[in-house]
């Protein structure tokens, strides 16, 4: 799987333009005109969105005109594989964190990556994850009094 840069350029420019359309559209509902107390709430975002839409489409067209047929690669399969093997555990980390809290999420994430991708001994990896979670707790909850997201485990252990 190889994605060419030119395709990605056009795609991203179009997506940004669509975002501009969405911003302008969302502002239209707020009123983009002029009231007794000055511009309406949607006035500023409407024009920002409009300009974004124009700039995005202009960039897409510009790219096609100037660089059509160029073969520079955006990402090759090897890079995509590396990227996914990093992104997927990271996404899983977010989901686990939402369910079980940041401490457990971070510990499991470190454990998994060190064990599966770093080829460490699972016990060593688990120690690493737990050690990291504990140091997070010491720095944030204890030293700076900034509580992090907690889950069922902390509730069970009565740590608040």
């Amino acid at each position: 799987m190889v994605i060419k840069r030119i395709h990605m350029e056009v795609l991203v420019a179009c997506l940004l333009a669509l975002a501009g359309v969405a911003v302008a559209g969302g502002s239209l509902e707020l009123g983009v005109g002029w009231t007794d107390s000055g511009p309406d709430a949607g006035y500023f975002p409407f024009y920002v969105g409009l300009l974004l839409a124009i700039a995005g489409f202009a960039n897409a067209i510009w790219t096609v005109i100037l660089h059509r047929g160029e073969t520079e690669i955006f990402i090759d399969s090897e890079q995509a594989r590396r990227l996914l093997s990093f992104l997927l555990p990271m996404t899983a980390f977010v989901i686990v964190t939402l369910l079980l809290g940041l401490y457990v999420g971070a510990a499991l994430y470190l454990f998994y990556v060190a064990w599966r991708q770093g080829k460490y001994n699972p016990f060593w990896a688990a120690g690493l994850g737990i050690g990291f979670a504990i140091s997070l707790f010491v720095v944030f909850d204890t030293l700076f009094k900034v509580p992090l997201l907690k889950g069922p485990l902390e509730a069970y252990l009565k740590i608040y």
Binding site: F93, L110, V113, G118, F140
Partner: peptide, 22 residues
């Protein structure tokens, strides 16, 4: 494999502490 996840976790922790919003 060790330092990468540590950086990622610190980034997410930092983002959470901004306004305690998941």
């Amino acid at each position: 494999a060790v330092i990468g996840p540590v950086i990622v976790a610190i980034c997410f922790v930092g983002a959470y502490t901004v306004s305690n919003a998941t």
